[in-house]
Structures are given as structure tokens and as C-alpha cells.
Design a protein around this nucleic acid. Structure first.
Lengths: 347, 347
DNA sequence: TTTCTAAATGTTATCGGTAACATTTTCCCT
DNA sequence: AGGGAAAATGTTACCGATAACATTTAGAAA
């Protein structure tokens, strides 16, 4: 692999490196003849100035880090994609870090982020399970080197740019919708009580039940996980433990994947959907319109949150402001899985 | 944002930068007392040597570029994910480039890749629609600076590491499966004839039909697109143009997304699946097991292709070998959408 | 105590660019 | 032709780290 440098180009073109830089950067103070000669050498070698060298000399990388558990999870996939394009729009690139599920923010990760001298870091999910002190400590350290943003539940309130997901409506909207349709026994499936962010979602759900005077039977809250298999297992476990009078008539799931599993298992057990059981997912993934019945779901608008986060990070490079918070309201996308389109109403 | 450098640490610890480097790199030739003193200063500042500086001095970036159309497409998502972890396993990171659909490999992209001085580039999809000469030209340029790998159809044969998808079986397996189940009128939906890679898939399908003495009615090959909406439109268009005697009894789709759309539209039209129409998708995406009926699909094993590509790229850094080719055989994952589980057989 | 070797630490050129500043060239005007 | 300003080009310090090489220090043997 040839390593062509600016010195090679300068020598071959018979000029100084300064002139090469001028040609590369389209500086107008170059005689046309010179520019042509230099450009020719540049083209012949397919030369472009090295980013590492530019970064070192310029003192910035024009790169943002995006830290998330896994990109194969569609929610995070959408965050990464949105962050990528928003950064791109501003002449920046993103660097991906996957922490795997349940991983807290490790000292090694902090080191690595500092090493990269990013222009900013965006944390999405996966760090809330960390011990609060460790977390603040890590953020403080990072904050000395670069602006930090998080896409987080609203009550976390860290010393950084905090783009908050709308946990309140995320619970309230499905419960209200189901209540309007006449449901009273509503269960929540998925997530994990061991993780703080998830339990928060479960807690919000229970609160909402109480607020609306609905039964908050402990059996209606099953700690399950985040994927389809979890959904299958969870609904099976829940239903097998309840006689028909205590059985919920509607299920709210942690996300659409869990909902997918629940729907499959229910069908296998002979339930007709949505008649025998209403279901609401979360994340409004692309496949929701294509399940049978089409899945009603809550959209947290991860793309917009990511965009805001990136925008604020880029602004923070200039300013001195420390923390910032905003919230993107969640919305409910009604499809068929609760029977609303049939004018279906539970009695 | 503070910019702590090795000079700051050296000054504060009262040693030279060489000693700081030694401490950071765990060089044993440092007195315990010194190491402690230096480490303390390092910790106090959360200092880590700058990657840009290290890259410049070391002459390598330990980073691979992954170029693909969009990560929101699950196929490419899986490629990126697999490449990420395989690189990680070898102490490298990846840098993502999204080219958007149908975009050829532009001169700007080539420049940008050279600028980044990556240790290698992996192209997945999206470059096959480019003019062959432009493409080879671009690959030649890139090849001067870094090893290049592609995940490509088998007959492309470029001067680079070529991980080939199994286009033959990708057509053959579904057609055979359907033939075994008694189907004779089989249609292909999706992709775009304007794009070279896709037409190749369609052509392979037609070839297979002929090989098996099945009717290759031109109406059985609809140029549609890559997503669910495309599938809905395509099946509607196809069926509305055919009377029942010419109607296909089975559909092979370009990918699972198109299949999702086809299934939805068919159900809407009152078809029972798989009784009235068999369907086979491609990519074996996570949701295939959760559609109703569960979707039979071809798996091209993108993860393994990405892994091989990354491994070969990393090997190529040392060696001088130019090109390399291997193929990962496609496999058919039989589920319910062709009725095989019911012992269902078309007459 | 002197001498010699090994251990510990320091000095400095280098990686590939950039830009401020210095110098040379060009060319217009008198 | 000579003077002077503008245009073109060159020189060089610096960005932050590393490693080869140089130097100092410590400790053991004589």
C-alpha cells in the first residue's frame, strides 16, 4: 500500500507543501499554471490529505460518538441512523460503540471515548442500569473533554444534554386508549425489573392503572425481557397462572418485539385477535402495519430525539452551557390490534 | 473543554513525556515510585493519549470502513453488526458510510475513504449499479491505499477480496421447494430491473424456471422495489392483469419486506395463506418466524460473509495478495408460508 | 572508594498536515 | 529603468504522541 504524503506531491510538482495545501483547499492565491500542475500530480496519485494529520493539527475530529447497546435492535438502529444523517448534514461523522445489553458504562469505554477526542458523545439506553455515582463520575470525566448528551427517561436529570423520552405518555396513552375501549383488566409484559429504566416504565404503567381506578393485580406485571421469545414465554406464564375471571383482556408490551411474540403465542393458544385480547406495543416499528392484526403502538420518536441530541451536541462545542433538557412527546398510533377500527368495545 | 496532553501530564508529574508514555504503555522499565506518581496525575486528569496523534505517528488507524446503502435495511444492518464485532475482536473499529439506495460509488466517497486512511474498506451492495469502468477505476484508486473487499454477486469478479453471495441457490432453492410441493406457476416479485445486481436475481429465477420446465410467463416477473409497499403494489398489479387460469400459485419475493407487503395485500383480497398462495421471502429476517403464516425464506448468511470479509481485509494488510474469492452457500429455511408443514401439495 | 554494568529517565526526530509569517516574483505606474 | 504594492510562493513552528538513541543514576563487585 503506497503512502503518498503532501511532501511527495510537493516534491513531484516542484512546489512547497504550503502551495499543495493551497491547491487542495482551493485557496484563490495560486497562479492558474501552478494550480494545474499541482492538481495533476494530486490526481495522478489519488492523493487526499490524511484525516489523522488534519485532526491532530486542527484539534478537533468532527466526529461524534454514538453509544448504544446493539444496533440490531430497531429502536437503536433508528437512533443511529438519524444521528448519522444529522451529523452528516453538519459536516460530521459518527463513530459507533455497542455496549451489549445490560452493560453499564465501563471505565474502559470512558477511556476509549476520551482517546478518540470526539466532538461529542451521545448515550442512548444501556447506561441507566449503572450505579448512579459511577455514572455521574463517568459523565463528569467525559464532560471535561467533550459535550455529552443522553437520550434518557425524564427523571434522570444528569449534568448533560438530556433528551428525554416521554415515559408518562408512553404508559398513559395505551392505558387510556384501552380504557376508552372498555378494558379494565390490563397487563404489562416485558422489560426487566432489574434494570432501572425498564422498571420505570413498568412503574409508570402501574401508576396509570391506579390513577384510572383500574385493578393493579401484581400478576398483571410480568418481568420478561426485550425480544419475541420473551413475549411468548411471558404471556404463557401469565395466562397459565390465572383463571379466566382474573385474566386480563388487554396487554401492553415493553416493545413491538415482545408484542410479536405475544401475538404468536396467543394465536397458537386459539385466541382470536383483537376480539379475545387487545394488544399495544411500543416503538411503532416498520412491521407494525404488517402484522395480523396490524399492531397499535406507541411512538417515542427516537429519530427526532437523536436529531435534537446531535444538534445540541454540535452547538455545545461553541457554547459553555453545561446542561440542557428537552422532551419529545410520545404518540399513540392506532391500528387494528385493539379492535378500535371495528368499533369494538369491551363490556 | 480542557485539552490535556502528554506534555501537561509530564510537566505536572515532573518527568519527561517518554516516561509518561512508558507508564501508559505499561513498560516495565519504570521505577515503581515514578509509575505511581505519574499514574496519579493521569488519573486526576482522566488522561488518555490522543488517537489522532497515535494514528499519525503509527501510520495506521486500525479502522475499517463499511460502505452500504442504508443501515435501516435489516440485511445491511446485520452486515454492519457482524463486521463491527469481527473488527472489534481484532482490536479494530469500523467506520460507517451510508450511500443511500441506488447510489453508485462516487469520486467524493473514494476521496473521503482515502482521506480516512482506513486499514481496509468493505463494500456491501449499492455499488453494482455503477458503470463497470468507473467502478474498477474507483477500486483501483482505493486499492493503492488500502485493501478492498466486496460482498457481491458471484459473476462480478473484481480485482479485490470478493465475498460472493450465493445467487444460484438463492433462486434454485425456492423454486425447487415449490416444485416439490407441486407448484408449477411461480412468480417473482420485487427488486428493480434497472439495477444490475437485482436483475441478476430475477434472471437467475427465470433460468431456474426454464431448467425445471416451468412456465416463464413474462407476467410472472414484476419489477417492484425493495420494501413492503412495493410488495403490496406489485402483487395487486400482477393479479389484476391475469385471469385465474394464468394466475401463479406461488410467489418468490426479492426479500422478506416485499413478502410482508404481499402477504398483507393477499389477505386483504381474501386469500387464505398458504392454501391459496405459497410465498417465499429472502434474508430470513428475525420477523419471519412471527408472521402469520410464518414465512419460509432464503438465508444468504450476511453475518458470515461480513465476518469473512473483515478477516480477509485484516489479513490483507500484511500480505501482498491482490484478489480473493469465496462463496457462502445460501440455505432455505422452511416455515409455514408454503404449506410444507401441513403436508400440503398443489395438484 | 573506584569502576563498571544495568536500570531509569531524558532528548529529539518523526508522523502529515496547516497557517502565520517571511520572502520572492510580477507587473503597473511614473 | 526604478520604485512599490500586490500577488505568488516558501519557511517553519506546531499539533500530540512514540521510539530510537543518549544520558544519568543506582547498585554491585573489586
Amino acid at each position: 500500500m503506497s503512502k503518498v504524503t503532501i511532501y511527495d506531491i510537493a516534491r513531484e510538482a516542484g512546489v512547497s507543501t504550503a502551495t499543495v495545501t493551497r491547491v487542495v483547499r482551493r485557496d484563490p492565491h495560486v497562479k492558474e499554471a501552478t494550480r494545474l500542475k499541482v492538481q495533476q500530480v494530486i490526481d495522478a496519485h489519488a492523493y487526499t490529505p490524511s484525516l489523522s494529520a488534519q485532526n491532530l493539527e486542527g484539534g478537533r475530529t468532527r466526529t461524534l460518538a454514538v453509544v448504544l447497546p446493539v444496533i440490531s435492535n430497531l429502536y437503536f438502529n433508528r437512533i443511529l441512523d438519524a444521528a448519522y444523517w444529522e451529523a452528516e448534514k453538519n459536516g460530521c461523522s459518527v463513530r459507533l460503540f455497542q455496549t451489549m445489553e445490560n452493560q453499564a458504562i465501563s471505565p474502559e469505554l470512558v477511556s476509549e471515548l476520551i482517546r478518540c477526542r470526539m466532538d461529542g458523545v451521545l448515550f442512548a439506553g444501556s447506561i441507566w442500569s449503572a450505579d448512579r455515582d459511577d455514572l455521574n463520575n463517568a459523565l463528569e470525566k467525559l464532560g471535561r473533554y467533550m459535550p455529552v448528551a443522553t437520550i434518557c427517561p425524564p427523571d434522570v436529570s444528569l449534568e448533560c444534554i438530556c433528551i428525554q423520552s416521554d415515559l408518562v405518555n408512553c404508559s398513559r396513552l395505551p392505558v387510556r386508549h384501552l380504557h376508552t375501549l372498555g378494558h379494565r383488566r390490563i397487563a404489562f409484559l416485558g422489560g426487566s425489573m432489574h434494570s432501572k429504566d425498564t422498571s420505570r416504565r413498568g412503574v409508570g404503567f402501574l401508576e396509570q392503572l391506579r390513577l384510572m381506578d383500574l385493578p393493579d393485580d401484581p400478576a398483571y406485571h410480568v418481568d420478561a425481557g426485550y425480544d419475541m421469545e420473551s413475549g411468548e414465554r411471558a404471556i404463557l406464564r401469565m395466562l397459565s397462572g390465572l383463571d379466566s375471571s382474573r385474566r386480563p383482556t388487554a396487554i401492553v408490551t415493553f416493545n413491538d418485539l415482545v408484542a410479536l411474540g405475544v401475538m404468536k403465542q396467543l394465536k397458537k393458544m386459539g385466541f382470536s385477535l383483537p376480539q379475545d385480547m387487545a394488544i399495544i406495543g411500543c416503538d411503532n416499528q416498520f412491521f407494525c402495519a404488517y402484522t395480523d392484526p396490524a399492531l397499535t403502538s406507541v411512538d417515542l420518536h427516537p429519530e427526532e430525539m437523536a436529531q435534537s441530541a446531535v444538534r445540541e451536541l454540535l452547538l455545545a462545542r461553541e457554547s459553555t452551557s453545561r446542561s440542557f433538557a428537552m422532551i419529545r412527546e410520545a404518540t399513540l398510533v392506532v391500528r387494528e390490534s385493539c379492535g378500535a377500527h371495528l368499533g369494538f368495545r369491551k363490556l
